Amino acid sequence: MAAVGKSTGRRARGRRAAATAVVAGAVAAGSLTAGCAGGGTPDDGRPPRPPRTAAWTPAPVPSRPQQARRAAPVLAVKIDNARAARPHTGLGAADVVYVEPVEGGLSRLLAVYASTLPEAVGPVRSARETDLELLRQFDRPALAFSGAQRRLLPLVGRAPLRAEPPGRRPDAYFRGAGAVPHNLYVRPHRLLRATPGVSALTTGFSYGAAPDGGVPEPVRTVRYPAARFTFTWDGSRQRYRVALDGTAAATTDGRPVVPSTVVVQNVRIRPSGYADSRGHNTPYTETVGSGTAKVLRGGKAYDALWKRPEPGDGTRFTTVDGEPLNFATGQVWVVFVRA
């Protein structure tokens, strides 16, 4: 009888431990899925659904020598670029803006902040698989995003970044006056304790004097199936004025969006294994590899080659002769187009 009693007690303790582990796992998973598409508040504004457990396991922090660590990571924010999301907030303060194709021929922006953290950025929308590879070039960046497709969440959890959706950091987000889902904004200072500085921008870009040559090209338009970007050289500002779908881009404080350098990067774009709530496949943009590009600076266009051998590498741009192709100091826009 004593042996039976001990065995029963061990089984009861085992059940209690298992139940505790399940509850702990549910809390951890809910912290990411709350506020995400397919769990919590979906990204397309649909009514919330209860989050499921099993969604997310954070990636381990890589072991690095203390002297190699940076004081703070960069902040990347996934920004809505639908017409209803404009004007943007805080976009002018970004060091780099990546333009990515998404479902339905539309586009979204991935803005990277290192030298300046504005008071607010947005509207914030959902992450895509493309973002995970693109952000591997930085040292464990913080990613602000509204959510992700449910099956993509495990990949987000395993990626070497700090996932910071509203479900994990509700204090960092707020809703503006617009309509859901185009009215979610993030407060960068609540995600980063310090501005990391330009040394954290491990993009591989080089800055300096323009190379010889180049062809005068004061206006360049890039078209997606359902989006259009026009970059017009403004000699008085020594910057490019940006127009989105034919309308001059300006932020909510009335300032124009004026990058110093624009890169039109030819890449492979293929279907991914994911789709939106309407069944539209999400395109995957391959940013590791090599190819050609056009670099716009100073009102001229330069033929360029790009190379990014590994996900952890930045992207190097060179002239066709193999010399580094310097960018002008200031904001850089990188527009991905199908090769």
Rank of each mutant, 00 (worst) to 15 (best):
G105E: 09
Y274I: 01
G204N: 15
P283R: 00
L153Q: 01
R241N: 12
A210V: 07
P309W: 00
L32W: 02
E119W: 15
T232M: 10
D212L: 14
V22E: 15
Y98N: 06
K6W: 11
L192A: 04
R52S: 14
A179F: 11
V337I: 13
R278C: 02
E119P: 09
R228Q: 13
V264C: 01
V77T: 10
D80T: 12
A339P: 15
T221R: 06
P216S: 04
A54S: 14
V4Y: 14
G14V: 13
Y284I: 02
T57F: 01
T130A: 03
R187Y: 04
P216Q: 05
R308K: 14
L152E: 02
A72V: 11
A127H: 02
G279I: 02
R151P: 03
G204L: 14
E323L: 10
T8N: 11
G246D: 09
S272M: 01
R64G: 04
W233L: 09
V267P: 00
Q238L: 14
A159I: 03
A76H: 08
Y284H: 05
A163N: 07
S126Y: 04
D80Q: 11
R228W: 10
Y274Q: 00
S63L: 07
L325E: 05
R16L: 06
A209M: 13
T221Q: 06
Y284W: 02
P65E: 09
Y284C: 00
R255M: 12
R237L: 09
T282C: 01
V4P: 10
A159T: 06
E310W: 12
L161Q: 06
G30F: 08
P225T: 01
A3F: 15
V257C: 11
G90Y: 05
